[in-house]
Design a protein around this nucleic acid. Sequence first.
DNA 1: ATACAAAACTAACAATCGTTAGTTTTGTGA
DNA 2: TCACAAAACTAACGATTGTTAGTTTTGTAT
Lengths: 190, 190
Amino acid sequence: MTSITRKQEIINTAALLFKEKGFNAVSMRDLAQEMGIKAASIYNHLPSKQSILGAIIFEVSVEFTNHINSVFDESRPILQKLEAIITMHIDLTLEKSEFLACMNNDWVHLNDADKKQYIKMRNAYEEKFRTLLRQGIREKALKPIDQEIMLFSILSTLRTFYLWYAKHKMLDFEKVKRDLCTTLLTGVRS
Amino acid sequence: MTSITRKQEIINTAALLFKEKGFNAVSMRDLAQEMGIKAASIYNHLPSKQSILGAIIFEVSVEFTNHINSVFDESRPILQKLEAIITMHIDLTLEKSEFLACMNNDWVHLNDADKKQYIKMRNAYEEKFRTLLRQGIREKALKPIDQEIMLFSILSTLRTFYLWYAKHKMLDFEKVKRDLCTTLLTGVRS
DNA sequence: ATACAAAACTAACAATCGTTAGTTTTGTGA
DNA sequence: TCACAAAACTAACGATTGTTAGTTTTGTAT
């Protein structure tokens, strides 16, 4: 199975380059050079440039979907569920920050079919999140604030966490997790 | 002065297109077509494609810099200053969301000189923000949480607020402002 | 009506893009 | 050693890119 490995190598390298320059600013020749081969050789492993982007994005978006679904179905207090989701975002950021960056910035450049599916998955994810927030408000665990603003505020922080991670090379992972949970859930004001 | 007006028209149109497809996915011919002219005609008003991007980005980044500087120098309680900054971000999002989108997504594609200057301004902005947070912690107005996490959490929400605004056509502006301040400062937990 | 500048045009350039076809090299198992 | 597949290569294609040069149209003030 050296083929799958080679294919995955290309995808990983592409994610790295896409993160730094953006999908459209990276040519197949750039990617090939980074791999130490010629551009045409890439097509022995993958059918198109857009398919590489698709592979990158779905690799993480599927993970997000699976994780929120399993958390959603557990029977735990709301606040613990929210903490679990936040932790999951942080974990994924640590191990696949380039993939997350691509997903955030370059999903617009997916082909029509992939884009449609991605948006569908993202909407489903947000809907699960919204449901949890609604439940939290109903149970008086959360403030009666507009759920959309809550959702947006938390998600935008989690989604761009990879930018922050790139700068601060994560000294104490457990403290970061704790502080971020505190900030997002109970705010900064004392 | 119809020249300045025409130039600004091109810049505004470019911001709109760049927001939707990204800098590299918009050709000069795309932009020209949107203006109802030919690509070459654009060069009567602006020297290059990158200069358009520069004009867009510095138009807003200068505004951000000026506003935080004036808030910084006022003598008001910390929490009021933070609220003023949040409000400023919301206001700028309302009136110039395309410009903000370009700044967030496409600053990487500035030419070297412009990019250097942009990063410098952004760092200065963040440093002022950090100083305010530090002061807030010292005065016990804010929780003794890692300042970098506070800074990142608040800024990432404010910076991507334009994404949210695009979806929810802002029914009650004052309520949105209030709820966002509450969420960012005191959190969602009741 | 004339003069002049603003702003559009046509035509083309060199470079680069994603991709294909066909061929050669490399590595592995029988 | 032979066969075969994996994975690289060369060469080229048609399209598109940002940009330039030179020319014509449009609008305005005298």
